[in-house]
């Protein structure tokens, strides 16, 4: 899939590109408003990531223009401006999602996956792991016919790990995903561990969960 990153902060754009490349996205970078418009004229993209505060123009203008040249693309607005007003106008103009800086690249990627599933009808909504099945839209985990009761946060954690299987996710990445924009200065807390412990406890009743690994000092990984 082709991605255009409109971001004036060069090293940030580079990191985004480096991360997305690993998941086989093809990335173009535009460092300015003008550059962004040029790229949009020249190419077709599946994803367009737009930083709102560009030195030579308003990112929302790019969004408006890009909607005409690339009507089928998915748009994610990226900004340090987390004001409600911007958020509303961005979504009004047809952005698919909104990410506030700073964010984890993993979070960006999973938002993109979610949009892809929705927008490009990629249906991998029924995920299987071990002997368990996870239905993302219905938010249920089943073992055979048995439904397993997970709390909201536990389900979020488990599905996030599965969507990024074979990759180590740090506690901070996981907690950013489940807490979102909620401010919690509890950075040293072990609540991710506590949730994982609960998930294991609930699943172990039915089958073993060796696929959910603890990576010492770093975080967790689902191996498949």
């Amino acid at each position: 899939m082709k991605v255009l990153i409109v971001e004036d902060e060069k090293s940030l754009a580079y990191e985004m590109e480096a991360f997305l490349k690993k998941s086989f996205y093809l990335c173009d970078i535009a460092h300015s408003f003008k550059n962004g418009l040029e790229q949009l004229e020249l190419n077709k993209y599946d994803f367009i990531l737009i930083d709102l505060s560009l030195p030579d123009g308003d990112g929302l203008e790019i969004l408006k223009k890009a909607k005409q040249s690339n009507p089928d693309a998915a748009y994610i607005i990226i900004t340090a401006r987390t004001q409600l007003k911007d958020r509303v106008s961005g979504l009004d103009l047809g952005a698919d999602d909104y990410l506030a800086k700073p964010f984890y690249l993993l979070e960006l990627q999973s938002r993109m996956q979610a949009i892809a599933r929705r927008k490009f009808s990629i249906t991998e909504e029924l995920l299987a792991i071990g002997e368990f099945h996870i239905d993302l839209p219905k938010r249920v985990v089943t073992f055979g016919q048995e439904k397993i009761e997970l709390s909201r946060k536990e389900f979020d954690l488990l599905s996030y790990l599965i969507l990024h299987k074979n990759r180590v996710l740090t506690r901070a990445q996981l907690s950013e995903h489940i807490w979102g924009t909620f401010v919690n200065d509890d950075y040293d807390s072990n609540y991710i561990d506590a949730h994982i412990k609960n998930i294991r406890k609930k699943l172990n009743v039915w089958a073993n969960t060796e696929w959910l690994e603890t990576v010492r000092g770093v975080g967790y990984r689902i191996k498949k």
Partner: peptide, 13 residues
């Protein structure tokens, strides 16, 4: 926010 973003994403990579 921007410098923090860069730091965080570099480490993530």
């Amino acid at each position: 926010m921007t410098p923090i973003s860069i730091l965080q994403n570099k480490m993530e990579n």
